[in-house]
Design a binder for these strands. Structure first.
Length: 309
DNA sequence: AAGACGAAAGTGGTTGA
DNA sequence: TCAACAACTTTCGTCTT
């Protein structure tokens, strides 16, 4: 399931405490938080494993289960020549017409796919995603094409939608903005196409869990693992207290990180956090104020943090 | 001077009649 | 289908460190 670790020790601080997150295929250093490798999934016969892991993880599979069935219609090639002579002139004409059509349709599909698959390769490499994600994106896109979902839509836009959908399926925290940036597709269109392909291919995704963002933002901010852990705690309690619903997960993650950084005297400015979290300072502010208001133990901890400064 | 704060007005998405 | 609504953004002036 997981490939051999390339690293035995953290190259940054040479600590041996490595910690991996199976869900995301990430390995991080426990003492400095450096993400060492995020492409650790070895896939091949792993679908079953995902399936049986736990009920809440079943969404990981989404569409693939039905994928192996041959596509409807388009996969069927139109007859051989052998019994052509039995047909009337009219039927022969029809036969040729149909075959011509099929050739047109399938070459159209093929050239579309060629274009799309190379675009997918590019996007995956820019985003630094693991191979299995590329496979999945390609597979789902192929299915979308075969079901005729791309007709009347721009290839690139549908690709962007599929990319985002797959990221969501695998709980890989990338924002709409990031997908929008690398694909050059307007953010709104990405969202629209995400919904479009999800709906038509029965891909189900749950709302994003803020926890998924915390690790990534923390690492980007080079925060101490302790601080990250604190932020995770905060998010967890907040979720339990039901003060997170309706709020953007990015904002929650950002607010929690801001508080955690204050508690652990590793002060980051709201602007810094806002930047990596892809929200505005105002949102960071509102989010962290909301958290403090509802979780009053945080106040004391922040005071303590200040005192020990 | 930089960071934090909050008010006001604008935007896009969701919801419910 | 439209209007009301909440969350988020943008912008900007003021207070705090």
């Amino acid at each position: 399931m997981i490939k051999d670790l390339q690293y035995k020790k953290c190259p940054e601080c040479t600590a041996e405490a490595l910690h991996w997150n199976k869900e995301k295929g990430e390995v991080a250093c426990k003492s400095c938080g450096l993400v060492l490798d995020d492409k650790l999934f070895d896939f091949g016969q792993e679908w079953r494993e995902f399936d049986s892991e736990s009920s809440e993880n079943r969404r990981r599979t989404g569409a693939p289960l039905t994928y192996t069935q041959e596509d409807r219609g388009l996969g069927t090639t139109i007859g051989t020549k052998s019994d052509l002579h039995k047909l009337s002139k009219k039927d022969k004409d029809k036969f040729y017409r149909l075959r011509l059509w099929q050739r047109r349709v399938s070459t159209a599909i093929e050239s579309n796919l060629r274009l799309a698959l190379s675009e997918i390769k590019r996007i995956v490499s820019v985003l630094g995603l693991p191979n299995y994600v590329e496979e999945e994106i390609s597979r789902i896109y192929t299915e979308a094409v075969q079901r005729g979902l791309v007709r009347g839509h721009s290839t690139e836009a549908v690709v962007a939608g599929v990319v985002y959908a797959v990221l969501r399926m695998y709980d890989i925290p990338r924002t709409l903005n990031e997908v929008s940036d690398v694909t050059g597709i307007d953010k709104k269109k990405v969202a629209k196409n995400f919904k479009y392909v999800s709906r038509n291919l029965n891909i189900r995704t749950l709302p994003i869990d803020p926890m998924n963002y915390v690790a990534r933002f923390a690492s980007e901010l080079k925060l101490d693992p302790q601080t990250q852990t604190k932020a995770l705690d905060i998010v967890q309690v907040a979720t339990k207290e039901e003060i997170t619903s309706g709020r953007s997960p990015k904002g929650i993650a950002a607010g929690a990180l801001y508080i955690a950084s204050k508690i652990h005297n590793e002060r980051k400015t709201q602007a810094e956090i806002a930047k990596v979290a892809d929200v505005t300072e105002v949102t960071v502010r509102n989010s962290y104020k909301e958290l403090i208001e509802n979780l009053n133990f945080l106040n004391d901890e922040m005071e303590k943090g200040k005192a020990s400064a």
